[in-house]
Design a protein around this nucleic acid. Structure first.
Lengths: 344, 344
DNA sequence: GTTAGCACTCACGGGCATCGAGTGCTAACA
DNA sequence: TGTTAGCACTCGATGCCCGTGAGTGCTAAC
């Protein structure tokens, strides 16, 4: 048996209806609500075929059919292939990131908010992650008589900072001089390399032992627990609005997964760095998400780093809408992180 | 009718049992499970009195009694008065903030995790908030040819940073010189004052118009949308484990409240800055939390700023345990933020 | 003041009938 | 040959009834 054009149309209608209502859809519904000039009996025959082909499931004999993961897959693939992602609605939706927003983390948090409130699903945004960052500048800023703030600017714009103790009292100028030395010595090094070089530098500039020791401690520690990328989540409560999660246990599992940010980041990032990824139900590889889908898109910064934005929703997600929203927000983030700083 | 010692003991037993099981407790349960040498009939009489006094509610006539908010209030008050908060268990629980943790936000996030996993309730931690921060140091760190990172260290240790555009190319030394000038000029000023002074400074040092304009823009913006305090939440999913939230709608309301951090911060902070606060059910003043209680404690930094840690749980919360945990963690945070930096 | 006894209440859960949405099949029709 | 009307059948959902049991309140006896 083959898929023909009519079967395709009917499948489409079933998917549309199920996405809308979340209730198994019967043959009558299709023959009446959608413009097929066919009777329910004919639809029934076709549905029976579609079930045999693996596109439909039947929860029990006297209920309607629901689309299988395979059906969504087909649906999404044609969606992606025909490029139905409306990019131009960008203008109509407006820009969500007006004004100057300074801290990358704020932008990311905000993006998660925006995406979740637009889609009514759960949104996850990961900060960009590139290769090993390389040091550009090291600067010590006096904080109090004995404390200094270490600011390390890397080529990824990522700033790591921490307050350390500088042993003897040092004035601003001394700190600046040391900063210059450190910058020259460490420029272009990765953080790991910097770590290795510190003892040698300490030998050359003596007298600042304590400070360098603290700096060393700070860097090694940073190595051990690498600053995982920032993960922003928005709209977790949205999921509870869908009947899929009217079971409290399921909901709890889902929520606690959303809380373990590291795991969540792995799941979201799991899809490589393609422009769009759609993983449906079992494709997610996460048991807790057996009846969820994950849609991701990527954005990039001027350094060519890739960040990820994603939406988690029930398998009967409004894929088309979600893809288009992710597309828009992805572009806006890219604009912002690449144009924003240097060209504006 | 008066409360006597026996009524008190019985009420105590009822509360204990209800906290444990979450099920209305009957007279037999009390007479058997607890060491009162009284028969169920006697307990029944006493319970009837306690109900009349407003300490017990009866969901329906053939069910047991449940403690009212007033009962919890009494319970907590005696708990607080008799100082049953076991402070010494501090050692047995161990220190949760071992190792050097650098960023205040990380510490706060971590604290929320720890508290929620110890209590099995939802934890909220607010970053310290004091009076207007005053500038200590301003430093410009070169990032690229045309960009610089502004680091402003305030007396609250709070560092605000942002990348701004410095017009013409400036080398590290020039930026340092400007930084020194700015530091001298702006030291001790609040951010608002700094804002006001910039134009005047710009007039004196000419040639760096663009940079100062950017700096000005950055500061005014910071004024308009004051950086609200950091709010860390942990264990929201814990709440779903309690039968109180087996109703999905209730759960969703609760969760979406947890998501609006600003509102949440207001609620948690709503209690002033007392050492301990317990608000029970209606006392929270939040309709979504009609059957929740909020317990808060405060911690402080060396600058005398107050931060808040809090636990949100069902009214039948293990108050004693929660108070003791908050006590411990509060002390640890205080130690960390006041001793940690300067004395260690 | 305490307790045993007893009638009464009422949520809960199982059993049962009903309902209705939906299916599959067959036979008739174009 | 494809489409449709008709019909018997399935099975979850809904609603009702009723027995059960935990728990109460009251009374009378200790």
């Amino acid at each position: 048996m083959e898929m023909d054009e009519r079967k395709m149309r009917i499948l489409q209608a079933i998917i549309d209806d199920y996405i809308l209502t979340g209730v198994p859809v019967g043959s009558r519904t299709i023959s009446r609500k959608y413009e097929t000039g066919l009777s329910s009996a004919t639809i029934r025959n076709e549905m029976s075929d579609l079930e045999e082909l693996g596109f439909l499931d039947q929860p029990h004999v006297s209920a309607g059919r629901i689309p299988s993961a395979k059906a969504y897959r087909l649906y999404v693939d044609t969606l992606l292939k025909t490029g139905t992602i409306p990019d131009d609605s960008r203008s109509s939706v407006g820009r969500y990131f007006a004004g100057r927003v300074h801290q990358m983390e704020d932008v990311i948090d905000h993006a998660a908010q925006v995406i979740s409130s637009l889609t009514h699903y759960t949104a996850v945004v990961l900060s960009p992650k590139g290769s090993q960052p390389r040091i550009r500048t090291v600067q010590l800023v006096p904080v109090s008589a004995e404390m200094a703030l270490v600011v390390i600017v890397t080529d990824q714009g990522v700033v790591r900072d921490s307050v350390i103790r500088v042993g003897s009292q040092m004035d601003s100028d001394t700190l600046y001089a040391i900063s210059r030395t450190l910058t020259i010595e460490l420029q272009g090094a990765t953080l790991a390399e910097a770590c290795d070089r510190i003892p040698e530098i300490a030998r050359r500039i003596n007298g600042n032992d304590q400070m360098l020791r603290e700096l060393y401690g700070y860097l090694t520690e940073g190595q051990k627990s690498p600053r995982r990328s920032h993960v922003a989540v928005g709209g977790t409560s949205n999921m509870l609005a869908y009947p899929e999660y009217s079971d409290v246990d399921k909901a709890r599992n889902f929520l606690s997964l959303m809380e373990t940010r590291d795991k969540l980041a792995d799941i979201i990032r799991g899809s490589g760095e393609m422009a769009f990824t759609v993983r449906i139900g079992p494709e997610t590889g996460v048991p807790e998400m057996a009846d969820c889908s994950i849609v991701t898109a990527s954005y990039s910064t001027r350094d060519g780093q890739q960040g990820t934005i994603g939406v988690i929703g029930p398998t009967r997600m409004q894929y088309s809408r979600v893809l288009s929203i992710l597309n828009i927000i992805g572009h806006q983030l890219t604009d912002m992180f690449s144009g924003g700083d240097e060209e504006r």
